[in-house]
């Protein structure tokens, strides 16, 4: 840590400025705080420098003459700004430009309103002729599905019946009881499922 002795002041006087600018190096905060606690001259200096710094920062930020700039307004970059689609440098330009350009702030506000309005549009119901057409398509699909399901069901039942009527001579350890139970349960509650007479496992015994 290098502390330069200020002319006519304490050795740590320079730290006051660095403190005001939040530019202290590690360890320097303790030094300046301890010093300000015991040096009246540096407390006065602290307030004078603080005032000076604040006054410098109130200097108005001047407008650059437009003739020096290639293109003074963002234009279509405003929409991209709203959508978060600008590069860093473009984003900085738009931000700094909006800081002083009333016209572009107004344009941005209008663009934002339009964007919000478009995005808040409700989802519309389709016209009637489209709805009728969709309903017919849905009905046809449902009919086709029922035919296919019936065919699959009949095939499954036929296969099951065939296997029961003509059991294989091969011996198997498979326990068919749960399947029989399920079948009988369905026969009792499902319409159209009793195409095969009810049976019991005893019927299949050799």
């Amino acid at each position: 840590m290098a502390v330069v002795k200020a002319a006519g002041g304490c050795a740590v006087a320079e730290l006051i400025t660095a403190y005001l600018d939040a530019e202290l190096q590690p360890g320097e905060l303790d030094i300046i705080v301890a010093h300000l606690g015991e040096c009246r001259g540096c407390i006065v200096e602290f307030h004078r420098l603080k005032e000076m710094r604040a006054a410098l920062r109130t200097l108005p930020f001047l407008e650059i003459p437009e003739r020096l700039l290639p293109d003074t307004h963002p234009g279509e970059e405003l929409s991209a700004y709203l959508d978060g689609q600008l590069s860093t440098i473009e984003h900085e330009f738009v931000i700094s430009h909006l800081d002083f350009c009333t016209d572009c702030r107004l344009e941005l506000h209008e663009l934002d309103s339009a964007r919000t309005a478009i995005r808040s549009l409700p989802g519309l119901e389709p016209p009637e002729f489209i709805a009728v057409h969709q309903e017919r398509v849905a009905r046809e699909r449902w009919s086709r599905r029922r035919v296919v399901a019936a065919a699959v069901g009949i095939s499954a039942v036929a296969a099951l019946a065939f296997s029961l009527l003509y059991p294989s001579h091969r011996t198997t350890d498979l326990d068919m009881t749960p399947l029989f139970d399920q079948h009988q349960a369905r026969v009792s509650v499902e319409y159209g499922f009793n195409v095969v007479p009810a049976f019991s496992p005893a019927d299949t015994a050799p």
Partner: peptide, 23 residues
């Protein structure tokens, strides 16, 4: 941000021109 690229001199003028002028 959409992309990062080397700024053009127009970018520099538009972003930094005012600061340079004040300096």
């Amino acid at each position: 941000m959409a992309d990062e690229r080397t700024p053009t001199w127009e970018d520099v003028a538009r972003v930094y021109g005012r600061k340079i002028y004040n300096f």
